[in-house]
Design a protein around this nucleic acid. Structure first.
Lengths: 248, 248
DNA sequence: GTGTTTTTTGACGACAAGTCAATAATTGAC
DNA sequence: GTCAATTATTGACTTGTCGTCAAAAAACAC
């Protein structure tokens, strides 16, 4: 039994090593540059050995995506419990999203590859479920904050909308902003000079529109957001480094 | 000169034919299934001939994307001029977005492929510019509606935000919703049962949050949106069929 | 009709995915 | 310690695609 575990561990160690080698290739050179031959060559193993770990490169991408999503969930977990009122906890989650995009850019890029049709549909049900599970946990965390707000009488969600559908709006706006920023290099030439600031304003206005108490006007809100980013950044960085240390 | 034009036309006719053949492959079977060999075989030409028209398949995708973006612009042009007050014109544009995603799903899928890193970066500057130009025109149309609202005193955009940054928020939320809907087949299991309705509510609430006059409560807004979709759909369908007829 | 230019063709080299029979290493029974 | 059985590793091989290019065919000019 102990034998089996040692072997098991060795295999897992090498699986992790494959991911470590594959990650910078995927992130910096793109999916097409990530070839099994190249991973094998860089690790000084034969190609067949890599195929013993992953049936195709799409599966490597999804394995990396699971890592990324788990980091995201960690950040969300931390922020969902941060501060006092639900509304400021929601704001903290927004800060986590900004942090993730800006400071965990590898993870963010990997998440985009994961959402690629051809990558997703080729990958195993099992890893798809892991991703979905993480996604569900992130959703639950944020919806939990919304539920708290409703429970405390600070928010009324209109017209039979579920808390999850409420969250979906915020998810769509932050996600959309990030994808557009990443895929439209010329946003500034379109007249959008500071997308992050714009989205902060939109989020604040949206929550005010729902009359989520305490309602905060945009000016003070932006200052609060800056302050919160300053407070949270070192703690999130700590979580991030913990996460990657845990994977070695 | 007339000779040259005839030849020119023949070349263009075949270029269009290539796109006609490539489109269903890309839309229904994905980018990897779209190979030059296959296009050549289906057209009963040699591969080299296809390469005379497009230097690689990424360029085919971008050519299709230009078609798609032009259709989008047409729909936007029509809707930006529809109805009376700026706020209802903005609503019409929202309806156009829904129409585009639901009834021009080919075009919508193509747009997603176009935003793929590896596709975009490989395509020619020239076609990238055509896409950007269309994107810019769409942005201008929508920002124009915002400018009208500001000019008529019905909207105040806060804190030195440009109208384009205002539009960016709406773009992000609709775009984000569409991508998430397309790439998360399990939205419903996350508790999001009617993403379109949710986004309609969010958009209405957001505009109300900005105090864009006339402020409409969510209930009547949803009814209005349904009515507008009913009124606009046949007209948009007409534009759509015109568009594709124009390409033959 | 003939020489020139343009277009089309498909064989070819390069490269990556994924397979698998042969080879090497590990294990555990005795 | 030996050896048969099991397990892991290897890299040559098949298949398929990209993108090129010299040769063949077609179109054209005169």
């Amino acid at each position: 039994m102990a034998e089996l575990t040692r072997k098991q561990r060795e295999i897992e160690r090498r699986t992790a090593e494959i991911l470590r080698v594959a990650k910078p290739i995927l992130v910096h050179e793109g999916f097409h540059a990530l070839s099994m031959d190249r991973v094998a060559a860089e690790m000084e193993y034969a190609k067949g050995t890599i195929y013993n770990h992953f049936p195709h490169k799409e599966e490597i991408v999804l394995a990396l995506a699971v890592e990324s999503m788990e980091l995201r969930r960690k950040l969300f977990e931390f922020c969902a419990a941060w501060g006092g009122k639900p509304r400021s906890r929601m704001m903290a989650i927004g800060t986590a999203c900004e942090f993730y995009t800006q400071h965990c850019s590898d993870a963010f890029v990997i998440e985009q590859w994961m959402r690629n049709h051809s990558v997703w549909e080729k990958s195993s049900q099992q890893r798809q479920n892991l991703v979905r599970q993480c996604e569900g946990q992130c959703m639950s965390l944020v919806a939990g904050v919304v539920r708290d707000a409703i429970g405390q009488g600070e928010l009324v969600v209109p017209l039979g909308m579920t808390p999850e559908e409420f969250v979906f709006g915020l998810w769509a706006i932050t996600f959309g902003c990030q994808i557009l920023t990443a895929s439209s290099p010329s946003l500034s030439s379109l007249g959008v000079h500071d997308p992050t600031r714009a989205i902060r304003i939109h989020c604040a206005t949206l929550l005010n529109g729902f009359d989520w108490q305490p309602v905060t006007t945009v000016g003070p809100y932006l200052e609060q957001a800056d302050q919160m980013a300053k407070d949270l950044t070192p703690r999130l960085q700590h979580l991030q480094s913990q996460h990657y240390r845990g994977l070695e």
